[in-house]
Design a protein around this nucleic acid. Structure first.
Lengths: 211, 211, 211, 211
DNA sequence: GATGAATGAGGGTTCATTCAT
DNA sequence: AATGAATGAACCCTCATTCAT
């Protein structure tokens, strides 16, 4: 059971990852050098190589780490009876992570390296899909079963909702446009859910359409 | 009228841009070297620098060029009386460009460099916004005026449609996932327009919802 | 006699020399590039090479030109009966040239290149020696013959005077220290002549010694 | 006291400085390349940059080093009662350093770079002024106090002596003319001191004037 | 296990010079 | 006679990586 007790080596490894993460996030993969990282870390470059065999491997470890962190944000949401409210809460959480400086930058870095290392892209996709969208899908399936919506293809419905949420706003974040304010983001989420529910919901008529 | 007749210099410049574009698209901005470009081009490195003052400038010229090309794909669409058909045609065009290897790779490169050179991101955004979405907006406005849809905020409606179109599928393309087949893309477009029309349209009932 | 009538080629050559001189004086021999010169000149680099076979040759032509100009400053001085006054006038002239920005910079450039091209140093030395000091020597010889001074070795006397004049002040100018004001320079000249005359003169006693 | 024991790093650094000094002295600052230096040194270019951040910095370190060496030549001279003899000894020392190949070349290099890096000129000036001339000044002050000379303005007297010493002969050395033989240099020093003492001294009459 | 020191390969960029026109 | 275009060589400098201690 010594994996439960982080030893000295694990701690050092964690410090390396954290420091290197800062550097990569600041100047990008190509812009970062092992010298920068080791000098900010305090040790020597050779020490870095004692923990990671190459720059690429170090970067991959960081991305793995970040993806795990990101996935953790999307877990453990309990749906309520009010579907709209549940969707709103989950969506807001999803958006606040994805649109944050950290979230947007993470995806930028992955895009930058996804050619050289396709595994990174898969990791990231899983982190969002298998957690973020999985949560959405669970919500939708429950709602479908409860007769709140009519969505025979849950996967497709989840894609539609995710598209409505991310869509243009995420696109612009990747291009380094400023993040929306929280109020703007909330309005955006409301509209997205509105559109979604109009299509999939069984409520009578559209609500909030002409705001 | 001598600007109409490209002289030697312009031709050579065009050849440089084309060759450099290939290299950048293959290995990314950081992965490309001026040596690679010049050797593939056939000349010497110094010749490159006679046409472009720096690697960065060469890259910017290429991106500018690509953005113009991309914008040109979105111009001059004539709407018909059938709104769904018009939207479908424009959307398919938009998607086929954006999801193509070339379109997706272009955005990846811009994401890679948008930090160092924010102007590139602006150029790209304009190429898509001011042409792609402008065309959409024109269509929607006409439809609104004709009473085919009810969209008091045309901008917002265009964002919704664009989000539905791009959304998840574009996201995955940026991460180097495979492009959908044409049939898949067509189905996606149909679904997106369906959702859109259900929300904004004045048609009676939803069509094609349960496919 | 067509050398008397400067033709087109000579004029152009002169313009090249003048422009190149500016550049060399601003950034030094190594710091200057043929591109800088030709672009400031207006023509093409190839034109430069039509007039001068190499950068080194162009530089040599400039230095030759400047040395001739410098030599011209030291000619045609007529001595008066008052030896001190004559020496003062000649010395002031000599010093004002040598300490000027132009004069000091010329010597710097020559020092920079004298290793690679010893001829430049010889030219410069001659410009000063065979004109500046020759004038001094003529003055001194006349004075000696008139019985105003007693200097059996005129050469040596001239060296002493020149040393007293140039000495420390020229040394500092070569190191880019600021030029003295005219008043300071005049005082320096007075003192130098005073020392000189005390040694070589036949006047009774020293004058102006304790100022 | 481990600063007293030069470690490996200091030794290597010293070797770099020595090798680089040779190269710079042979071909000048602009003519030298880091490749030349590293290949003569035996290591790689990157090693050079581990010790000095840039070519300019390496050069500056060398010049600083040389200036310190030069300054060390001028220290610790004890005057005797015989002023002429003391002046002669100090002057000979000063001249032999300044006129040596090494001394002259050092100043040439500094002149070459004094524009780009004025600090070098200041260093050199101090090395000579604050040591060479300071020694002279100390001698003169003592002599003045003893009543051997009458020099109310010691600074000025020192400038005069230094000028007489350096003057023409140093000027020519900067232009790469050959160094005088030791005999010639001694004669020059004698003459300079003779002129100086005639002006400032309180001895009766001039001595050695007509040699 | 950690490190200071070292390095080969390559980066972007500039240069003096030479052709074909 | 003049030039626009081209180039090979070299520049300073940085990098990811390794090895002896």
């Amino acid at each position: 059971m010594d994996t439960q007790v982080p030893n000295f080596r694990d701690e050092r490894r964690a410090r390396i990852i954290e420091t290197a993460r800062e550097v990569f996030y600041e100047v990008g993969y190509a812009g970062a050098s092992m010298s920068m990282i080791s000098s900010r870390l305090g040790g020597s470059k050779a020490t870095l190589y004692a923990y990671f065999n190459s720059k690429e491997e170090l970067f991959a470890a960081i991305i793995r780490d970040q993806c795990m962190t990101m996935a953790s944000f999307f877990q453990a949401h309990i749906g309520t009876d009010d579907l709209r409210q549940s969707l709103t809460m989950v969506s807001r959480q999803l958006m606040s992570v994805v649109l944050s400086d950290w979230g947007a930058r993470t995806m930028q870095l992955i895009v930058e390296e996804s050619r050289r290392n396709p595994m990174l892209a898969r990791l990231f996709n899983e982190a969002i899909e298998e957690n973020g969208r999985a949560t959405l899908k669970a919500l939708l399936r429950t709602a479908h079963d409860k007769g709140q919506i009519e969505a025979p293809d849950i996967d497709e419905a989840a894609v539609i909702l995710k598209s409505l949420l991310f869509g243009d706003i995420h696109f612009k974040r990747l291009l380094n446009f400023e993040a929306p304010t929280e109020a703007q983001m909330y309005r955006h989420v409301d509209r997205a859910i509105d559109v979604f529910m109009t299509y999939y919901g069984l409520e009578a008529g559209r609500s909030g359409r002409v705001s």
